[in-house]
């Protein structure tokens, strides 16, 4: 097995271990398992980073273009945001109970789709805008994933009490924190769409064409735009928005990776046709 793939599956394995510890931690109400989950996630992050580094150095082409590469980078950003939050705010330890299973399943899925690194980069992708685009997408996804995790914390805390639930922040704080991650994610998605528009403008001379990938990203953005308006103008709080954040995450994954990649839109290359 090539080292790249070995590292890949080690990362998947450690994320799986982390996901299990979080889930058992919630069931057994055992805080030590959360800590174990956090350190397994951190351990998995090392081979995860190595996968990206190896792929990149092999060809000199940044590995963020195919669907599996895109998922690998999205999870890379998510775990980074998640781990940073865990270390800066010890109260939200159980957050991993949503974040890590999602990271585990998505990485496993990416593993089944992965292909050897391309030896050539399509000319249409040779643009600085693509960098802004990719970073906006990755951090945007990480933020809304954490927001959904906070939504789950909110619902659990509302339902149960005692033990680990006493240690969580109070409901209003969880709600507020979740809102911040949605707003942050919304901005990063905005950045993704704006840079995408500039990129299309550079390549095709128009910034918006209603093509499926564009519309799908608009859909995921509007989902969170509606969230913000429900909160700010309609005064929604708490449970309803917690559910919204969870359902929106599912819609997000579908609209971001599930469907758009199945349609071919940005084809490039030498095509002699009329």
């Amino acid at each position: 097995m090539k080292p790249e793939y070995a590292f890949f599956w080690i990362a998947v394995g450690l994320y799986g271990l982390s996901a299990c510890s979080y889930i058992f931690g919630i069931i057994a109400r055992n805080e030590k398992l959360f800590l174990f989950g956090l350190y397994s996630a951190l351990a998995g992050y090392i081979p995860h980073t190595a996968v990206i580094a190896i792929r990149w150095s092999e060809t000199g082409i940044s590995p963020f273009f195919t669907i599996s590469e895109s998922i690998v980078f999205g999870i890379f950003c998510s775990v980074l945001i998640f781990v940073t939050l865990e270390f800066s705010n010890k109260k939200v330890r159980p957050l991993g109970v949503l974040v890590m299973p999602v990271a585990f399943v998505m990485m496993g899925w990416a593993g089944t789709l992965t292909k050897d690194a391309a030896s050539q980069i399509a000319p249409s992708l040779q643009s600085w805008w693509i960098w802004v685009h990719i970073i906006g997408a990755g951090t945007g996804f990480g933020s809304v994933l954490v927001a959904a995790g906070l939504g789950l914390m909110y619902l659990l805390k509302e339902k149960y009490s005692g033990g680990i639930y006493e240690k969580l922040p109070d409901l209003q704080s969880i709600d507020n924190l979740g809102y911040r991650f949605v707003a942050g994610g919304f901005i990063m998605y905005g950045l993704m769409i704006v840079s995408g528009a500039f990129w299309a403008n550079q390549v095709k001379g128009n910034y918006w064409n209603w093509d499926p990938v564009e519309v799908w990203s608009l859909i995921s953005w509007l989902i969170y735009g509606i969230y913000l308006h429900l909160r700010i103008t309609m005064g929604w709080r708490g449970r309803r928005l917690a559910w919204y954040a969870l359902i929106a995450l599912a819609a997000m994954i579908i609209s971001y990776w599930g469907i758009p990649f199945t349609v071919e839109t940005f084809h490039a290359g030498f095509r002699i046709e009329h």
């Binding site: 499926p212 859909i219 509007l222 989902i223 735009g225 509606i226 308006h229 309609m234 469907i259």
Partner: peptide
């Protein structure tokens, strides 16, 4: 603000239609 939300949701629904049932 209700109208704003209705419009946002309507546009959202059109976008979803435009990439699922109807395409390209």
């Amino acid at each position: 603000t209700k109208l704003a939300l209705i419009l946002l949701i309507a546009i959202f629904a059109c976008c979803v239609m435009g990439v699922t049932i109807l395409r390209g």
